[in-house]
Nucleic acid binder design. Sequence first.
DNA 1: CAATTAAGATTACATTTGTAAACGAAGGGA
DNA 2: TCCCTTCGTTTACAAATGTAATCTTAATTG
Lengths: 148, 148
Amino acid sequence: MATTELAITISDAEWRVMRIVWTLGQADSRTIIELLEQQHDWKAPTIKTLIGRLVKKGALGTTKNGRQFIYTPLIAEQAAMDGALLNELDQMCAMHRGTALVHVMEQTELSKTDIQSLIDCLAQKLPTAPDMVDCDCLPDGCEGSCEP
Amino acid sequence: MATTELAITISDAEWRVMRIVWTLGQADSRTIIELLEQQHDWKAPTIKTLIGRLVKKGALGTTKNGRQFIYTPLIAEQAAMDGALLNELDQMCAMHRGTALVHVMEQTELSKTDIQSLIDCLAQKLPTAPDMVDCDCLPDGCEGSCEP
DNA sequence: CAATTAAGATTACATTTGTAAACGAAGGGA
DNA sequence: TCCCTTCGTTTACAAATGTAATCTTAATTG
């Protein structure tokens, strides 16, 4: 491919802005600022800065509406969520990822439908799953001696 | 409680150092530097800086061993992993977390044991799970109108 | 038409992070 | 004892991030 697709990174604060726009589908700055001023004690200029950075990053698109802009998401919420979580998980020890996911599950509220999807997904993986996933914290042949 | 326990944050680069020390249980800087120089093209001083920052943050402890130090983890790997993932997930829309976890599952290699633990955990949650988890992206009473 | 308001753009500044060079002290070998 | 290798410490510097004031311009209002 020609253009090297480097993933957009969204910072924590910027994530708050994206959530508003994702949820509303589109929004002008007035709306975004009003909603975020309620949730955080951010000043309007702070939020304007975040919006500006997101536009520059290509996470938000703009449409002129008279004097102002209407902002729309240029990246999908679910894809951004999946990517952020996978990134985080991928930088951790492969051997311990499963346990981490168990702990995350335990502490996350899930709908019946979500739970069913997860169970289905897991049931499908089970037959071909390895007995153990090796630690990948050390280079090449160094055995990760991660015993207790 | 007296001391307000503010969680230690470990950056991506620092995470690499922690993984070495977690896996080995303890290590001197020589060992850490040698291992990391293989995995990344980091210079020794870079790795020294990272080690220094982790000590200052309280993530690594030191024991004097002659002229040099032996570094040991002061925080548990699994707890750090769990916390980092939960933090990430918690800043995302509650309604979409389940789907994100499905996608993460699909793309993560898990052992049979892990899968079984996850299924057990999910089966246990199922009876009391809600039919739906509401979107929490907008303040207070604003209904998250997240329909397709 | 003048004064005010609101929207976006520019500038600001401290902290964290990635990445590394330079420096100083302590041991080891000649 | 003197130099060189190591180790840890100090300093460096750009980019990203959190947080915000100021400025410019265009529209609203009297």
